[in-house]
């Protein structure tokens, strides 16, 4: 199995499709894995449940995380990642509807690395995702 470079955690199938399209257009979709909720994401990252046996050492380069998801929210995923020394260094980019969402404050407190606003307008959304490309470049330089 190819190494997962980008882990996208997004419950809304349309938002996921659009995000993937935007990532592809920006050449950011190599080794992309899409998971549909926070629970799956934790299973994947920590090699448990449906991903039993997967090594926690095989980290994605970046996690693109939707905040508002049923059951295990993005905020909880972020909390677990940042609290565990094995995973606290994985860069996390959260997807949010508005940057003045009160939840964003928690995200910063938890140590989120970046955020992408999901605007209504398609072209603006693509611009937001392409801004990720810049972030991606920096992440790669650090490694």
């Amino acid at each position: 199995m190819q190494r997962v470079e980008v882990l996208l955690v997004e419950d809304n199938e349309h938002d996921a499709e659009l995000t993937i399209r935007a990532l592809k257009k920006n050449n950011l979709a190599n080794g992309l894995m899409h998971l549909k909720d926070g629970g799956e994401a934790l299973d994947f990252i920590f090699g448990q449940g449906m991903f039993e046996g997967r090594s926690v050492e095989s980290k994605p380069r970046v996690i693109v995380l939707d905040i508002n998801m049923p059951r295990v929210s993005g905020l909880e995923v972020l909390q677990r990642l940042k609290a565990d020394e094995r995973t606290c260094n994985i860069p996390v980019v959260v997807l949010t509807s508005t940057k003045d969402d009160p939840i964003m404050k928690h995200c910063y407190e938890l140590g989120v690395n970046s955020y992408v606003v999901k605007p209504v307008a398609f072209d603006a959304f693509f611009k937001e995702i392409s801004a990720l490309g810049f972030f991606w470049m920096i992440v790669n330089q650090v490694e």
Partner: peptide
């Protein structure tokens, strides 16, 4: 907040 997601889908798929 919740109205934005379907609207984003409508707008984006049309584009």
């Amino acid at each position: 907040h919740d109205l934005r997601a379907p609207l984003r889908a409508v707008h984006s798929y049309a584009m």
